[in-house]
Simulated scan of single mutants.
Amino acid sequence: MGLDPHQLRDLIIRPTLQRLGYWTEAAEELVLGTAIQESGLRFVRQLGSGPARGLWQMEPATHDDLWLNYLNSRTKIGLNVLGPYSKPDAGRLVWDLGYACAMCRVHYLRCPGVLPAAGDHEGQAAYWKRWYNTALGAGTIEQYLANWQRVMGNA
């Protein structure tokens, strides 16, 4: 049994995205769907020997690249992501849900195009696959949709 997805959305995702200034209903759904797909809302470390961390299963190399090549030149959002801490640390992806959520949203911020609309789960699954999981990743659009349905039903 994992985290309650409604509590994760209402108590972590929405307030985090609002604090960053990048909340939309579509972004909220995509970030929630990414956590559902990536960790099943259960795992904070990649199973096996993989490096991914947190509910959003972000690899430390991706985390560091986001800071070096995106957040480094965007001081305001970078400070909002850091919160009370003074420097980025990929280890926080495991124990700080707000930080890991913020880094997932930042990952999507640097992707081109508009986020799929709220309720467009097929579009969100395709967007996740293209920009988060990538063509080389093992996840599929069908898995994303099945996992969303299993956890959220028609919500």
Rank of each mutant, 00 (worst) to 15 (best):
N133Q: 05
L20E: 09
L82Q: 11
S49D: 14
G21V: 15
A117Q: 12
V114A: 14
Q124M: 09
L115G: 02
L55A: 02
A126M: 12
G153M: 03
H63M: 13
R53F: 03
L145R: 15
H121K: 07
P60A: 13
E59C: 03
Q57S: 03
T34M: 04
T140R: 11
L68Q: 15
W67N: 15
M152E: 13
N72Q: 15
A27Q: 05
M1A: 12
L136C: 05
T16H: 09
L109K: 00
A155K: 12
Q18E: 15
Y85S: 10
L93Q: 08
P88H: 14
W131A: 02
G2H: 03
M58P: 00
R19M: 12
H107R: 10
A35H: 01
Y127G: 01
N69A: 06
G91C: 08
W95V: 06
Q124E: 11
R45M: 14
V81T: 11
Q124Y: 01
L32N: 06
R9N: 04
G113W: 05
E59A: 13
W95E: 12
I141K: 13
V114C: 01
K76G: 00
G50N: 11
I141L: 07
M58W: 01
E122P: 00
Q37G: 06
R53N: 07
C111D: 09
E38P: 02
Y85K: 04
T140F: 05
G78T: 01
F43H: 15
P84T: 03
Q124I: 13
G83F: 11
L8S: 01
A52F: 00
L82C: 07
T140C: 09
I77M: 10
N69W: 08
G33Q: 14
L11Q: 11
W67F: 15
P60H: 07
V31T: 12
V44N: 10
L11T: 06
L8I: 08
P5A: 10
Q7N: 11
W128I: 02
F43D: 13
N69T: 13
Y85F: 14
Q37I: 00
V151E: 10
T134Q: 09
G91Q: 07
K87V: 11
A100C: 07
V151H: 00
A61C: 09
L11H: 12
A126E: 03
